[in-house]
């Protein structure tokens, strides 16, 4: 299995719901808590596993605004794992989820340096590295209703721009989306083979116009229309 997310840039409105849902779930989740420093002071800062960036593509008037959520891509060739000296970081062989064993991490930051996607953040409280768990504590929890065995960010996304599934299964929703919507990896040249895929904004086709029903108003004045 190769679990991951397909993220639809055509519909993401940049609402940050997935980011706060993630923070909410995971602060009491398997790698929690996610500490915040100066939560009510100057320069508040904390550990997040998912952040939304907004880019402008092109130059006005032909510019496009694109919202891009970024969390761990669960890379196939995850250098964050390779570099980890303690073995805290690992990629699960059964499903490809990249995780951090909190009891092993020594907070050396090296994995964060190795990650091209800014997916790892050091928790200022625990001193350990935090990152997206793909909500491993939801997706396998047999006691959750089946429909809720999905990452927190996925169930909450109001535009349903995040789809979770198995990229190894060609019939899964994510595989189909990747094929049909030409899903793209970010920074492929680095060779990390990220699993998460980004579905580019769709081109909108020109539309037909008018099509005279009535001709001009003056011509059709006072058709007999029964009230």
């Amino acid at each position: 299995m190769k679990l991951g997310l397909a993220i639809d840039l055509d519909t993401c409105v940049g609402c940050h719901a997935c980011a706060t849902a993630c923070k909410q779930w995971n602060t009491s989740g398997t790698i929690g808590p996610l500490t915040d420093t100066r939560p009510y002071g100057k320069d508040p800062n904390g550990a997040w596993l998912n952040r939304i960036r907004t880019f402008e593509v092109g130059v006005s008037p032909d510019s496009k605004t694109v919202n891009m959520p970024l969390s761990c891509m669960h890379c196939d060739d995850a250098a964050c794992v390779t570099v980890c000296p303690t073995g805290a970081s690992y990629k699960r062989s059964e499903d490809g989820i990249v995780l951090i064993d909190q009891s092993r991490c020594m907070g050396c930051n090296l994995c964060a340096w190795a990650c091209p996607y800014g997916a790892r953040e050091l928790d200022p409280g625990s001193g350990t590295m935090k990152k997206c768990t793909l909500c491993v504590d939801r997706i396998y929890d047999q006691q959750l209703p089946e429909s809720e065995r999905q990452p927190a960010c996925v169930i909450t996304c109001p535009t349903q721009s995040r789809v979770f599934g198995d990229f190894d299964d060609p019939e899964s929703d994510v595989s189909k989306l990747q094929r049909e919507r030409d899903g793209q990896p970010l920074m492929p040249e680095l060779g990390y083979n990220p699993v998460n895929t980004y579905l580019p904004p769709r081109e909108s086709a020109p539309r037909p116009q008018g099509g005279s029903v009535l001709g001009t108003v003056k011509k059709i004045v006072n058709r007999i229309i029964h009230r």
Binding site: V81, V83, C84, P85, T86, G87, A88, M106, C108
Partner: peptide
Amino acid sequence: LANPKNAWRSFSRWRSSWL
């Protein structure tokens, strides 16, 4: 290190990690 109490564990992944 932010969590030096685990520093000793850094001997464990010599198979892949330069650190």
